[in-house]
Design a protein around this nucleic acid. Structure first.
Lengths: 233, 233
DNA sequence: GTCTATAGATCGATAGAC
DNA sequence: GTCTATCGATCTATAGAC
């Protein structure tokens, strides 16, 4: 796939596509077909760091290395950019959880959920932060769409808890409330966990699983406890 | 305490002070010595609803019924206004908890904390929302001050958990992490609870206390369970 | 203590050249 | 597809009259 020398001098190739390096000066007429993703990545980082309302389109453009007018080739307006970030995050979350292994007991599914949620959210801290800090900046229609995705995720956990109660494995007074409480507890990890600190990711997952298991008053059963080797997610 | 007829026509008296009604037109030279509190109340509501960065000083002034210039008699700048709201909220929280009854067992103190936290936070939803959504809008110095208050509150709970572990009443693997998890769980109530819904405040407090108690694997002991009458906080 | 007026900066979004 | 230039609106904060 031959490329003009000028472009080859400016960037490199990734999967057969010409990629401009982010620190290079850009000139009128230079193109990159990954500008869209780079705009979203820059917006994600800036929105998470400074808040949607406090970030200007000019700041986003500067981070990408283009002028502000160029952004509007990729988004009709600032609000749609925010919505896209949230929608993609929530869709990825739902898809990833639906790919979790099937045929497990309620206790095993709850452990899988606990470990999955912690890992998934820590790996996407900016998107998680935005997805519940900036809800009020969505239009009514966009807000409803994100809320539906969030509710679907909560309902998945509620199903696990309800099934565990039916099977006599859990003691949970109100599965709906318990699912919200559990998710809030797990998501809270993002506010304090930092890689390289006192606890590893695996440590944190195990500690939270221990608390979650006790919270639903599940017997130890054949499952894991304490520091032992666990399956992870 | 005689007052000019003109003022008596415009407002009413509260604790011997002349109070202007919020919907009345204000004219140059009319005064109110509760303008400061009313500015903070308006800012609290608007910051919670729209976000600090999205709210203009003109909006706050309009809500109070003054012109924008008047605000600067009560705050040196917008950021100090935000900080004052957060600081007062956290100080009230710490003071209120320190007034909790003494001489209780760890189990009783944990129940008191659980019920106190839920009630206190639901009664101040706007301040709670702001106090962790707008932390990034504080200057470094102000941020450190709020963080210290938050840490003091977390440490209070950690102390309860540690003491319960020492006494053999709780099974908690990591009291520090457990305190953060518990606070995140309890604060999460604010995101979904609405008065007049399926559950009363008392219902919610009891459900969360049940979960918290199981989470620390506390025996039922002589304390309460389920729907029974409890002390509240 | 509140007003009016304004300085000085920045914003989102668009138009048209290339 | 990106640039430059710009419109019209809005912002924080201040100055000075009353």
């Amino acid at each position: 796939m031959p490329q003009p020398a000028r472009q080859r001098k400016q960037g490199f190739y990734l999967n057969g596509r010409s990629v401009s390096l982010c620190f290079m000066a850009r000139t009128a007429g230079s193109h990159s077909d990954i500008t869209g993703p780079r705009i979203r990545a820059a917006a994600l980082r800036l929105f998470a760091q400074n808040g949607y309302a406090a970030v200007s389109m000019r700041q986003i453009a500067a981070e990408v290395g283009v002028q502000v007018g160029a952004l509007y080739n990729y988004t009709p307006d600032k609000q749609s950019l925010l919505y896209t970030l949230m929608e993609e995050h929530m869709a990825t979350l739902l898809t990833a959880w639906r790919e979790a292994p099937k045929g497990l007991s309620p206790l095993e599914r709850l452990e899988a959920f606990t470990r999955f949620h912690i890992r998934f959210n820590l790996e996407r801290a900016d998107a998680v932060f935005i997805s519940y800090m900036e809800l009020r900046n969505l239009t009514g229609e966009n807000f409803a769409a994100i809320e539906a995705q969030r509710r679907a995720y909560e309902t998945a956990l509620e199903g696990i808890l309800s099934e565990g109660v039916r099977a006599g494995a859990f003691r949970v007074q109100d599965p709906k409330v318990a699912s919200l409480a559990l998710i809030a507890m797990l998501t809270g990890v993002n506010t304090w966990y930092r890689a390289g600190g006192r606890l590893s990711l695996e440590d944190v997952q195990t500690i939270y699983w221990d608390m979650a298991r006790q919270m639903v008053a599940a017997d130890l059963g054949g499952s894991s406890l304490g520091t032992g080797a666990q399956q992870g997610t």
